[in-house]
Every structure is written in C-alpha cells, then in structure tokens.
C-alpha cells in the first residue's frame, strides 16, 4: 500500500561533488508512504509528483529511496556507508510518452497497477518500470512488485 513522493525539479549546489551527493534531481524518489497518506500543500507540482501503487507494501518500494553508495567498502565518519549520490534510482519523467507526462505534471500523480490490485489505474507497473533508472548500473528496472 504505497505512494512514492518524487522530486519534480532539480536542486543544485555550486560544488559538483556536493551537488551529486546532496541534491535531489528531477525524478528522484524522496519518501515512501502508505496508501492512506495524504500529502501537504507543497508535496505536489511544481516541486513534487506522486506515484501511487495501491496494494503494494511500503517495504517493497523502499529500495527506491536508498542512496547510491560509494563502491569502496570504507565507511564515513558517522559509521554509515559513504554516499555517492543522493538517490540510486531516478524516474525519468522527461522520457515518458507525452500523454503520460502531461497527465502527471497536470494532476501531480499517476496510479499504477501492480500485484493483485484491480482498481482503476493510469498505467501498469510493467509500463512504468521501464522509465525507472538505476543510476549505478545504468539499467532500467526489470523487477516486478
């Protein structure tokens, strides 16, 4: 029962390393909430869009809000693996078909059918996942939910 809040605009930092490590870019997932969650006034366009995936557990999609970690096994000073990029996954909003992109940016959300969900939806997970890019492997998502 998940919704993914996705950043819809770039944040930038003048330092390229800080920009990569720290700044959310358009299409990066930020937080995951359950189906029942209602969003605040700023959690919509132009700053954000929401991917609604009814019936899919929050835990299943939490991997999309993981950062990309450094390849080296070293840890940073907070005893956590060192972050290379703010997020490992990115939803390629600008690569969507025109109709989907227009709908998303107008309504601020897409409802995606996955698992056993049989209610109304905009697209299936199989359609959407091919626009979700793993920035570490440079491959699109292929797994089912």
């Amino acid at each position: 029962m998940a919704q993914i809040l996705v950043k819809a605009i770039d944040a930038t930092h003048a330092d390229p390393v800080k920009d990569r490590r720290g700044c959310y870019k358009r299409g990066m997932p930020v937080v995951v909430m359950p189906d029942t969650h209602t969003w605040g006034a700023e959690e919509r366009p132009p700053k954000f869009i929401v991917l609604k995936i009814p019936g899919v557990p929050v835990e299943t999609v939490k991997k999309y809000i993981e950062p990309e970690l450094e390849d080296s096994p070293g840890e940073d000073k907070k005893q956590q693996p060192k972050i290379y990029r703010r997020r490992m996954w990115r939803f390629r909003i600008d690569h969507l078909p025109a109709a989907a992109k227009t709908k998303l940016l107008k309504n601020g959300e897409l409802t995606i059918r996955a698992g056993t969900y049989d209610g109304s939806y905009d697209y299936t997970w199989a359609q959407v996942r091919s626009y979700i890019r793993n920035l570490k492997t440079n491959t699109y998502e292929t797994e089912n939910l």
Partner: peptide, 26 residues
C-alpha cells in the same frame, strides 16, 4: 513551512525529509 505528519490545517509537508527535499538549495 509547516511540517505535520498528520497533514493538519496549514500543512506544507508531511515529513521533515520531504521539507528538506522541497526547500533544499542556496
């Protein structure tokens, strides 16, 4: 900006992490 996990009246963000993402910048 108002951060309120319960999305009460006047809420801008429903988590501190979303606030950070939304307001991040120079």
């Amino acid at each position: 900006k108002i951060v309120d996990p319960d999305n009460g009246s006047g809420t801008d963000y429903t988590s501190l992490s979303a606030w950070e993402a939304g307001e991040q910048g120079d």
